[in-house]
Amino acid sequence: MLPLTLDHVEFSVNGRDIIRPITCEIQAGTRTMILGPNGAGKSVLMRLCHGLLQPTRGRVVWHKAVAAQRARDQAMVFQRPVMLRRSAIANVMYALKLAGMAPVECRLRAEDVLEAVGLASVAERPARVLSGGEQQRLALARAWALGPEVLFLDEPTANLDPNATRDIEQIIGAIHASGTKIIMSTHSLGQARRLGDEILFLSEGRLAERASVDLFFRQPQSPEAVSYLRGELP
């Protein structure tokens, strides 16, 4: 379904522009980091790509239109994980069942991903009593189980401590290694550097700069990126 093309995508709410015209093409394979200060429009841009929001103007076009299969072809993990009031494994199975998988298969697949994210031992525990880090790992497992072609991650470690953050970053690496395209927003420079291949730098709803991670950190081109890199704590 990739590449994903944004064609003059704009988004505004009550006359306030959140996303000013953005045109770009996102390719398969690389890990794309959407970087920028708070309020730059990172989350909104991801929701526009994922289809949770409709652009006010412009179009979001997937290479292969597969609207009906959307749930399985792309998935999203949010900043605050939304856990259903049931066991950890049932949370994963819920997503698989919605995607149309047979119940027996669901359980096997769910057990596999929980094992992969290190949650096999708490599979039967109610999801809502897990720690914040465990909940986010479960959210990743739920998305990963679907075997999506593209995974959106909206600041998945914003509420987590360093240890939990490390776990999450490892899992994201494994998901990418399994062949899933990663599109992730973050405001952490270190994380963007660790996880990213390319940077989309947003500033005030504009795509201020797009570059490989290496180039972006060595030689930022836009004044906004230069000042962001200077101002951000290490």
């Binding site: 949770l52 749930a71 939304v82 049931r86 819920y94 919605l98």
Partner: peptide, 26 residues
Amino acid sequence: REYEEQLRSLGAGTLAAARTLLWDTR
């Protein structure tokens, strides 16, 4: 309000969302 984005992201229609919410607010 809490579940909407997650459920829509997973592809839940109105009926599936209603059933899920009824169960989760039991």
